[in-house]
Amino acid sequence: MVNVNKRLPLILTLLAAVLTGTFAGTLLTSSPQPSFWAKLRYGASMSDGQYLFDSVADIVPGASDSGAFKAAAALVQGTVVDIEPGIAYASDDGDSGAPVVPYDSQDAAMRYAGLVVRVDKVLAGRLGQGYTDGKIRIRVEQPATTTLAELKESIGTAGTGLMFVHNLAERQQLLGRPVTDPAQLTYARTVYTPIGEGLFVEESAGGPVVAPLMDARRAAQLLGYTYLSEDSEAEPSPTPTCDDLDPCFTPTSKPSATATSVPAGGTEPASTTPPSLTALRSTLLAAACAEGTSADSTSC
């Protein structure tokens, strides 16, 4: 009994330590579930490439071509209401197209889901085939790190946004690559492809927009704010040097972006926060007015 009394403070302290540790761990691990867009954007395929335009004004319906890139058919304001299975591709080591497989197939290496969007307003241009019951379906890559069921669960966090879109079948026709396979044509007629990775979404009313299909730095460039990342604080990016071993690359195959357009942020000092949906909408409407494609010309 004497021994227990002597060790009581130690026992109590250790007990407190265990409880505190457990509590802290619980607090830190019970992070909020990632939003719909966080689930959709991360873990998707990654690539390297060159941007063909450098301003949101270049995506607006009616904007002139920027190299190979062609502007969107429509700019809509819409609300994401559901997500559905779309099309899936397997892998093939040839250079012919990847084989289409059932959406749930184990062989599917790439899946595109259909984002069901209620069109609240067509702001510029026009929608085409596949616009039924006031809704369109936008195809987006479904990362292998999430399921459709998980995405459906979080659909309530998807919010509303401004979306540059073009019906896939009509787009391919415009590009001179019409879809000829009957099954794929049926699919292409029902879905819209996001143009210029241009989905700008407000997850909460009045909050900053997110651009879930874009690289963060690209979104910052187009929306006119400064992107702060871990590596931007790690060390400055020096001017690239060129030598025999590492000559400066001059693009030759395809034209890259011009440097004449103005980002959505205009000439205001660069902020570290993306604009609100309202501010972006004003910028885009002005661009649509300039192109003569605004759906409501009286507002120009």
Binding site: S47, A68, S256
Partner: peptide, 30 residues
């Protein structure tokens, strides 16, 4: 490698996305 046009439904020349893709990586077994 190949001269890709729409492999995996991707827009390799950037005519729709505005990003001319030179290379792409996908984890096919997560």
């Amino acid at each position: 490698d190949a001269r890709y046009v729409d492999y995996w439904g991707k827009d390799w020349d950037g005519s729709s996305t505005g990003v001319n893709i030179t290379g792409a990586t996908k984890c096919v077994r997560v």
